[in-house]
Design a protein around this nucleic acid. Structure first.
Length: 926
RNA sequence: GCCCGGGUGGCGGAAUUGGUAGACGCAGCAGACUCAAAAUCUGCCGUUCGCAAGAAUGUAUCGGUUCGAUUCCGAUCCCGGGCACCA
């Protein structure tokens, strides 16, 4: 019998579906294992070969864990709210719900062809009202909570209200600050609006104001990647910053716990580092500098002198400050700029306003403008010029820095560029050419800090600053609160009603607040979202913003556990059972966004007692990105002639993307190319060696580059098992690599060869019940060890080569013995479930291979008594020698010295040293 | 610019803790089977020199540590991901 993969796969996929073989029950008596994939956004382009990489890895691991006796939860769903569907709706008028539904159907069909063991009964879709009801509910939890700084956790906002009513909000020490502190009596006399305003300052989901990319011509807010060089990607219209009312999540309150939590989870060091850097905790001081400027206009305010507050992580360098830099958005600029500098400053601020934050950070060119004003160093009275430059960002620290050019590279370049004199406070550590950010230098030119080692001066400086009353110790975070609203249609509506400028939560029993139908998806007035165009919506005073893409994905791992529950988002007993995600697989592109948000949501739900753990993902594996390998044809300029890559330099050509699916390796199928597009029907070709060779380039996989490969085609041609194994055989899951279909044949050949161990084309089943030889058992047990170890460490590519080696060896041994082959079927079942099931059945089993007992490794079959030792002379391999593993070191040395190759290299001399590492190697040093 | 990752034959990759570089597969070459093709099987396959035995060289580049470095350290170059409204 031949390996009829199409029939086999169809048969088993239907059978497993009918038997509900992948149905997972909340069976609390069994040990559980939770494997989760980052769910996809169902784009209109369908699944390409990059998507399933992580899913295949998780599927293999899930099936493996199931064989090992675990109750495995391995669900799948769709992150179905998002911008592309909305843009498509804008362009075509089709409702996003309709296109999304269609896309999801395509995705599901494609996924099913690959033979995943998803329990579709547990599918979630973030745009489904049954799901987003609970997203809205969790939003209300966030809205109705505050972060208690004493207990370092979320608590109901009602507790805070009670505290305000009975104790007010007074400082622990010092004078109360008006607007911030108040007594209980004051609180009770506040108007409702005043109370709401104060509570808003503490809520975990709160309303504030923030800048967005505003495009007047399109009348809408643009995402960063929709803005290119200051103009909109579509249409090239100018984009400016606009301040809009926005919702935020107070993720900064959780900064410390998000940092500490990293110690409890199994993420890669790189991932932890990225998150740590994103949170960007630093400690230093905020220092106030008095501003001195020619009194051209009377200072605003109550006659108090203007003060410039900076944040620095290096208060020890206070005497090295040579200038100040304000972010172009800094409020003080208008007040301190002198008349002479006004024009220059305005021009500069205008220029910066047209640039995105990304552009500003990536800018190499040094730019800035002098305000004309000076700040006074509180310790030595030096007057320090105040500049404005885009390299200081408004959102970080106080939006102003004290620049110490001898110790900071950017400050140094700035000083050089504008010829600002540089004070050296670190003596010989500064060479006058580049800054030295050392903390080990002894301070000079530094007043009372002179002679101190910088790292010791830090503390002394902070104390002096505090004693003098010119500043305070301060911990800062680079991370900002997360903007949580979008002026868009296709997202979760906020369950918020506005009355007299006060945000009121919708009662829980009115959830879900259903996203209404709209006639057009265009923006509303004044940058508001499309919902503001709906009279019924605005009549009810509902919030017109919607939630961002990451809302639904911040908690979906919980919903899979209890997807049908309409009483709670997830029953507590169920979330206690399934607990944390044991293995989470997804791309690094989500390193800081999604992962931090979902970690925060989990912490809030934990604090409020809704779940029993405060980290969602126990272990995270990052799959690499599959890049596209594009193919190019070269059209001779102005003709319909195409020249092969090797000859293209002889002509003037334009490179054109050719569909990778009509190219075999690099050889173009010219007939298919002619049929590909009408304009190429009459194409002529200039060949080399009778072939048309394409150019190649590695790019992002995308429809427009014609480098996407649809898994359906490959599954059709080679079968799901081949496809699954080939994706894994490409290389380590964590690594990015370009897709190349060439090579899939090898894996397919392997499966055919594996099949032939069991079944002969003519004779059918050829499995015998003969006893296995020691040699065969050695192959088997080596393979058991290899597959188990490699599967455990997610090294699927080497596991597959292990299967290939075993198959080759058993084929050479002509082994068709049941006792050797059947365990192999169980080993391979997670990787190639269909062929495993078919052969399992063929060998006479009535039970399912999905739940067969996993073979046990026995070391006695693989123990060796001797080893082919590499013998090196001066570290260079010269020969090998077979030596018993239990040989005594002296005997080994003698054997090696007696060897004629070693003798030759010794040239009669005695060796200086012989290094013998048992079981590894021997090195003779001459 | 900043943060993170990667760079090994013609190609994808292996080498798990510093110990035989190139497992396994693709492509290529030679051969067997066949009327032929497909399928299958056998052998060769980093580069240079050599009939061969063998030698030299080789893991992005340069330098260091070590008896020994793809692996550790320092510097440089190139590629990919992220940088807060793509998901």
């Amino acid at each position: 019998m031949e390996y009829q993969f199409r029939d086999i796969e169809k048969k088993w996929q239907e059978k497993w579906k009918a038997e509900q073989a992948y149905r997972v029950n909340n069976d609390f008596s069994k040990p559980k294992f939770y494997v989760l994939d980052m769910f996809p956004y169902p784009s209109g382009a369908g699944l390409h070969v990059g998507h399933p990489l992580g899913y295949i890895a998780s599927d293999i691991y899930s099936r493996y864990k199931r064989l090992k006796g675990f109750n495995v939860l391995h669900p799948m769903g769709f992150d179905s709210f998002g911008l592309p569907a909305e843009q498509y709706a804008l362009d075509t008028g089709q409702h996003p719900a309709v296109t999304t539904k269609k896309n999801i159907e395509t995705f599901k069909a494609q996924l099913d062809h690959i033979g995943f063991c998803f329990d579709w009964e547990r599918e979630v879709q973030t745009s489904d009202p049954k799901y987003y009801k609970w997203t809205q509910w969790i939003f209300l939890q966030l809205f109705n909570s505050y972060f208690c700084n004493t207990e370092k956790k979320a608590r109901p906002i009602a507790d805070l209200v009670k505290k305000y009513e009975t104790k007010g909000a007074l400082p622990k020490t010092g004078e109360p600050v008006p607007g911030r502190h108040f007594t209980a009596e004051q609180w009770n006399n506040f108007s409702e609006k005043e109370k709401a305003g104060l509570l808003m300052k503490r809520r975990l989901a709160y309303c504030g104001y923030g800048e967005v990319n505003w495009c007047e011509a399109l009348g809408t807010v643009l995402a960063n990647d929709e803005v290119v060089n200051g103009v909109s990607e579509r249409g090239g219209h100018p984009v400016v910053k606009k301040t809009l009312r926005q919702w935020y999540l107070r993720i900064t309150a959780y900064a410390d716990r998000l940092l500490e939590g990293l110690d409890k989870v199994d993420f890669s060091d790189a991932m932890k580092e990225m998150q740590t850097n994103w949170i960007g905790k630093s400690s230093g001081a905020e220092i106030d500098f008095e501003v001195k400027k020619p009194p051209l206009s009377p200072p605003k305010g109550e006659g108090t002198a203007l003060k410039l507050r900076v944040y620095t992580t290096r208060p020890d360098t206070i005497f090295g400050v040579d200038f100040m830099v304000l972010a172009p958005e800094h409020k003080l600029i208008a007040d301190i700029t002198t008349e002479e500098q006004k024009k220059a400053v305005q021009d500069y601020v205008g220029y910066v306003n047209s640039r995105s934050e990304r552009e500003r950070m990536a800018e190499k060119k040094i730019s800035g403008v002098f305000t004309g004003a000076y700040a006074v160093n509180p310790f030595d009275g030096r007057e320090i010029p105040i500049w404005v430059s885009e390299y200081v960002l408004a959102g970080y620290g106080t939006g102003a820095i004290m620049a110490v050019p001898c110790g900071d590279e950017r400050d140094h370049k700035f000083a050089r560029h504008f010829t600002i004199p540089i004070t050296n406070i670190i003596g010989s550590h500064y060479n006058g050419e580049e800054a030295n950010p050392t903390k080990e230098a002894t301070l000079e030119n530094s007043g009372f800090l002179n002679g101190l080692l910088m790292k010791n001066a830090m503390e002394v400086a902070i104390r002096a600053i505090e004693e003098k009353g010119v500043g305070t110790r301060k911990v800062n975070y680079k991370m900002r609160d997360a903007a949580f609203s979008r002026q868009r249609y296709w997202g979760e509506p906020f369950p918020i009603v506005w009355e007299n400028g006060i945000a009121y939560p919708l009662p829980e029993d009115q959830l879900p607040l259903i996203l209404p139908e709209v006639e057009k998806y265009g923006p509303g007035p004044d940058g508001e979202g499309p919902l503001s165009n709906i009279k019924d919506w605005t009549d009810r005073s509902l919030e017109t913003n919607t939630m961002p893409g990451y809302a639904g994905s911040s908690w979906y791992f919980l919903r899979y556990m209890d997807p049908e529950n309409d009483k709670v988002f997830c029953d507590r007993r169920v979330s206690d059972y399934w607990n944390q995600v044991d293995l989470y697989i997804g791309g690094t592109e989500h390193a800081v966004g999604h992962l931090l948000y979902s970690r925060m949501w989990t912490k809030v739900l934990f604090d409020l007692g809704h779940i029993g753990y405060d980290e969602p993902y126990k272990k995270l594996v990052n799959q690499g990105m599959i890049q596209g390998s594009s193919r190019f044809v070269y059209r001779v300029a102005g003709t319909n002639k195409f020249v092969s890559a090797g000859l293209k330099d002889r002509y003037e050509t334009n490179a054109i993307h050719a569909d990778v699916n009509i190219v075999d390796g690099v050889e173009l199928d010219v007939d298919a190319f002619k049929k590909w597009r009408e304009e190429y029907t009459a194409a002529e070709f200039i060949l080399e060696d009778g072939k048309y060779i394409c150019g190649t380039e590695v790019e992002k996989m995308s429809k427009s580059k014609y480098n996407t490969v649809n898994p359906d085609d490959l599954v059709m041609k080679y079968g799901a098992d081949t496809f699954r194994m080939y994706e894994m055989f490409l290389g380590p899951v964590e690594m990015s690599k370009p897709w190349d279909t060439k090579g899939i044949e090898g894996v397919h050949r392997f499966l055919k060869k594996f099949w032939r161990l069991f079944s002969d084309e003519i004779k059918g089943l050829i499995v015998t019940d003969e006893a296995a030889t020691p040699e065969e058992l050695k192959v088997l047990h080596r393979t058991i060890r290899k597959i188990e170890e490699d599967t455990e460490r997610f090294s699927f590519n080497t596991a597959i080569s292990g299967f290939m080696i075993a198959t080759n060896e058993l084929n050479d041994l002509k082994c068709h013995k049941r006792s050797v082959l059947e365990p192999l079927l169980v080993l391979i079942a997670p990787y190639a479930p269909h062929i495993a099931a078919e052969l399992w059945e063929l060998s006479g089993h009535r039970d399912s291979v999905l739940d067969a007992p996993y073979p046990e490794f026995n070391a006695k079959y693989v123990t060796e008594t001797s080893k082919e030792y590499p013998i090196s002379v001066n570290g260079k391999l010269r020969t090998t020698l077979n030596i018993a593993l239990d040989a005594a070191p002296e005997d080994v040395e003698q054997l090696v010295l007696d060897n004629e190759v070693v003798q030759k290299w010794l040239e009669g001399k005695a060796p200086k040293k012989i290094i013998f590492v048992k079981g590894k190697m021997v090195n003779v040093v001459i």
